[in-house]
Nucleic acid binder design. Structure first.
Lengths: 249, 249
DNA sequence: CGACACTTTGAAGACGATCAACGCCGGTGG
DNA sequence: CCACCGGCGTTGATCGTCTTCAAAGTGTCG
């Protein structure tokens, strides 16, 4: 299970401070398929995922569901509610696999930010980073083709999960990935075939990116976030321990 | 020209504090078409738009440009850079019309946040709000059809610019709007024809939304942001002076 | 009047969604 | 042990939507 004390969110805090903060939470388990919360409900808690994956999604009245995000251990849920006028959940939260979270009352989040400015800054840094990601996401959706979206997603997966691009297994189902990318499962499936021609093979759940540079060129032609965009660079950064630090104001 | 002292960003500050902050800036003019900054350049300033519209956009090597945002008087540029590890501009900034901005050195932004916590909170609230908008944007791009996107955009335009839905003029060109919505000008043009059947007429630059409820139903069927989503409600909120206030931590 | 930017319209094509059928696998129950 | 089922993924055919290319219309401003 995840070691919470090493999270970004707690970076720069003393061990005592961490202890104090962590006391406010309790561990909860959700079996695969169970809902953590529902879209529209008032936000009551802040969550840190300790184990498993959580799907954030919405549905329209046709019953179609659109996956906003799939979060993994170490990531948090409902952090932005603290600054937000909107007091209700903006999406459903569901356990994709068996999930363990650490759950904190919303008040704890506000209290902690008020009392510990480092924590507050970490939190804000996190929110700002998410904002950036969301923008990039929007741009990708608007400008990239299905194969590009998929390739880009798989690349980023490597960075996020510390996978070796040369060979790794998908952390969750293709159905979920397709939904996450805003495309139909069929489209996703056909897309994988096309990507073979570009040196990206997916067989069953196993992925091989044989020519990373080629894939990056294929994706990043459109990926105008330029400098920071390539997996190559991201992986390198990670290797050098240069993870993003919250900027001090 | 815009009265800067009434901006969200300065809400809750004393007049003296505002004076102090505003002293740090200087007014600059950019004629229509001129660039404020370029994608990839280091961020040097923070801008408040006093007059005119600014286009934020990127281009890929094919020369296609994708508009991220079109900002109007009262809105700000480069605010999120303060919390961001990324020190370079994420997009080009260009004057759509003749533009006047108030320009502040980036240091001013950091300094002010450090010295005035109310200002800091306002700023963060602004960033969080943008994050939310970006998410919504991404979802819309992924789930709505072209006519829905257009209708939704025009609706929001009414709220943002305080236009009467019964009849108003587009604040900038159709070409720019199309680019902003991530579609081709031709698609946009054809889309307007289709929307006539739904009670939304556009002739030249003049827009009439004859049946707001109908349009909202057409759009918001997909618009899963639900509660806060309708123009109707937004306009009402505005009328009652219930603009969003930054939450205190 | 002519140049030019902006917009509209038409026709062809590409792409992704949808519907339908099928294969694969793991689990359940007879 | 086998038959059946349900969840998941693939594949094929078709359809609608958006893009692309091309041409022509509208407006403004010198």
């Amino acid at each position: 299970m995840l070691e919470t004390r090493t999270l970004q969110l707690f970076s720069g805090l003393t061990e005592q401070e961490k202890d104090g903060l962590l006391k406010g939470g309790r561990v909860r388990s959700f079996p695969r398929g169970e809902m953590l919360f529902f879209h529209g409900e008032p936000v009551t808690h802040f969550y840190m995922i300790l184990e498993g994956n959580v799907q954030l999604f919405r549905e329209n009245q046709d019953g179609d569901e659109k996956t906003i995000h799939v979060l993994k251990a170490g990531q948090t849920l409902c952090e932005s509610e603290i600054l937000d006028a909107c007091r209700n959940h903006r999406a459903h939260g569901k356990a994709v696999s068996d999930v363990k979270v650490m759950e904190f009352p919303l008040q704890w989040l506000k209290q902690s930010s008020r009392e510990c400015s480092t924590f507050a800054l970490n939190l804000l840094s996190l929110i700002a980073a998410q904002a950036h990601m969301a923008e990039v996401e929007a741009e990708h959706q608007a400008t990239m083709s299905a194969p590009q979206l998929v390739a880009c997603f798989l690349q980023r997966l490597c960075v996020l999960y510390d996978f070796d691009p040369k060979g790794f297994d998908l952390p969750y189902s293709k159905t979920l990935i397709a939904s996450r990318l805003g495309m139909e499962l069929e489209t996703f499936s056909r897309t994988l075939a096309k990507l073979k021609e570009h040196g990206l093979t997916v067989e069953g759940t196993h992925v091989k990116i044989s020519d990373l540079a080629r894939i990056e060129h294929y994706v990043c032609g459109m990926c105008s976030i330029s400098e920071e965009c390539t997996t190559h660079q991201m992986l390198e950064k990670k290797a050098h321990g240069r993870t993003k630090r919250p900027t001090t104001l």
